[in-house]
Nucleic acid binder design. Structure first.
Lengths: 165, 165
DNA sequence: TCTGAAATAAGGTTCCC
DNA sequence: GGGAACCTTATTTCAGA
């Protein structure tokens, strides 16, 4: 069976990546299919891993976690051991909601979520800077979010696209 | 009625923010409730806006969108007009999956998703740098994602927390 | 007023064409 | 791909604590 995503798949994905609570019948109607083939397409997209999971999006503000920061991290010595040692901390740090190694001046880019500036400062001093692994942290406090989406830009995909594993 | 989130609410939220496909019966069992009160709690959390929506998470790699960048943007002149002009472009730029104004050297931090480096370069030249609004772009290419979650760190909330609107 | 059990309605899943 | 039966789950209602 082909691993291709056709335009109908893309339209289905585009609907459900914005709203996972749509019923199969609703999705089917919007894309012009009947429920059965629509369900089979969704099932297939799950099976091949294009659909990873369904999640519930919460409002951080309403939970008192309105303070967010992009922190650029530089390690004192970015050796393999130090990278591993740093990354091993992530499980202990719920504040860090995303972490990636990046090119450029900094070794890591983190997205950090805390209650307020004070809690962020605590996290910085007691956790991030506690070991001598980290040589510098550049904090970019989010003043205002203009756009935040969990959705992937499917517009860039439609037409057709092979998927790779 | 109180706007408080008690520990049971937090446990429910923690379950469903990781997996929105859990049935109410399963959630109820895991938190030690029967389905009805569990369902009512979820309903209430939706009503007060703590639960924003359910979404489907797709795999960008499998859709051929494996190239991601954190781009720090500086405007030539960060006037109110220019900020608005810049932000007005976001709807036209599916590549930009998140955008926020931040403190520090740069005016905006963007997360950009494209097919590959070439497509990113096109976007940079033809879109981001096409107008004279933007004076500089610092591209931090994501080499490896260590942690990426849509979940909010509820560990920082439990205990109890008032929600604000 | 809140919990849990049972009834009902809605949707997911399968089978057959 | 579509239609219909079937089975699971969401949702509501109601009785009891």
């Amino acid at each position: 069976m082909s691993d291709n995503i056709d335009e109908l798949d893309a339209r289905i994905l585009d609907l459900i990546q914005e709203d996972a609570s749509l019923s199969v019948a609703e999705i089917a109607e919007k894309v012009g299919l009947s429920p059965s083939p629509c369900w089979r397409r969704i099932k297939r997209l799950e099976d091949i891993g294009v659909i990873k999971k369904r999640v519930t999006v919460l409002d951080p503000e309403k939970l008192g976690l309105g303070f967010e920061v992009y922190a650029g991290i530089k390690l004192s010595v970015p050796s393999r051991e130090n990278l591993e040692a740093f990354e091993a901390n992530l499980d202990k740090w719920p504040e860090v909601v995303s972490c990636a190694t990046v090119t450029g001046r900094e070794d890591y880019m983190l997205r950090i979520m805390t209650r307020d500036m004070h809690a962020y400062d605590d996290f910085l001093r007691d956790q991030l800077l506690a070991s001598d692994l980290v040589s510098s942290v550049e904090s970019r406090i989010i003043v205002r979010s203009i756009k935040t989406t969990t959705a992937v830009p499917l517009k860039l995909v439609i037409g057709d696209r092979m998927t790779n594993s």
